[in-house]
């Protein structure tokens, strides 16, 4: 057995299966068209992943003004994106999935900024496919790739399962995403595999980047991974043989 030391006395808060809650997430889910997002859901059902802190109470009383979209004008696109990220990083016994972590909002903001517009990339033509060793050569920026890919996910869902992507069962959603991962879907000026790898990358970034970017809510991505965040130093821990578990620290804590 692994002997975990517990530096800051933080126990495992994240236990207990709650299948009715998951069903609620799905039913009340963001495809029904009402208020969407984890803050709302957290407010309604509480958030068991951090229910021993003050933030659960806060989320009931304080509106989250950051839960609005910048990049995705169409609600349906955002709903498809949300469930796609949830399939990539699903809620489970370890803790929240992409939706509760705020990953869809993280991606929305990233696509609205320089990354989504490929501001730091060489985007001059001519564009040719080239060899596999020559890297991605798409004339589309990441925002355009996401918009096209997300809409195609919904098209494939409707065609294959006669239902929009958010309404599909988990296994059906996985099946659709696998078609993109395996490059079985035709997209214009970009491969579906490239789109999927961007979607996967952005989902993991949203789960694990500093919460200042809108994902990794309450640092729960870091908690699940036992990653301590922006601690100032590890000079006192670096030689320890045993694993040391710490309460994570965010940049907003760090800057106090």
């Amino acid at each position: 057995m692994v002997d975990d030391k517990n530096k800051n006395g933080n126990g495992d808060a994240n236990q207990e299966e709650d299948s009715s809650r998951r069903k609620f997430l799905k039913d009340a889910g963001i495809f029904t068209g009402g208020v969407v997002g984890a803050g709302f859901l957290g407010g309604v059902i509480g958030n068991k992943w951090w229910d021993d802190s003050d933030s659960a109470t806060e989320s009931k009383t304080t509106p989250d003004f950051s839960e609005a979209r910048i990049f995705f004008n169409r609600r349906e696109d955002f709903n498809v994106l949300s469930w796609a990220t949830e399939r990539i990083f699903p809620e489970d016994d370890h803790g929240p999935g992409a939706i509760l972590l705020g990953v869809p909002y993280f991606i929305d903001r990233q696509l609205a900024g320089p990354w989504g517009k490929n501001a730091d990339d060489y985007m001059m033509g001519p564009f040719k496919e080239g060899e596999s060793t020559q890297g991605f050569q798409s004339p589309l920026n990441r925002g355009e790739i996401f918009t096209q890919g997300i809409r195609e996910i919904n098209k494939v869902s409707n065609k294959k399962f006669k239902s929009s992507f958010p309404e599909l069962e988990e296994e059906q959603q996985n099946e659709v995403l696998m078609m993109f991962e395996n490059d079985e879907v035709e997209l214009k000026n970009v491969s579906s595999a490239r789109f999927f790898s961007l979607l996967r990358q952005a989902t993991l970034e949203g789960a694990y980047s500093d919460p200042l970017y809108g994902g990794n809510r309450n640092m729960d991505g870091w908690r699940m991974k036992e990653f301590p965040g922006a601690q100032s130093a590890y000079i006192n821990e670096i030689e320890e043989e045993d694993f040391i578990k710490m309460d994570p620290v965010s940049l907003s804590d760090y800057n106090q």
Binding site: D121, Y122, M123, E131, T133, Q134
Partner: peptide, 20 residues
């Protein structure tokens, strides 16, 4: 890289493409 990058190819017979 928005202004300048490298182009790359594996051998003399291939057309080099930019690292974007």
């Amino acid at each position: 890289l928005s202004d300048a990058t490298l182009t790359f190819r594996n051998n003399l017979d291939t057309e080099a493409l930019p690292i974007r």
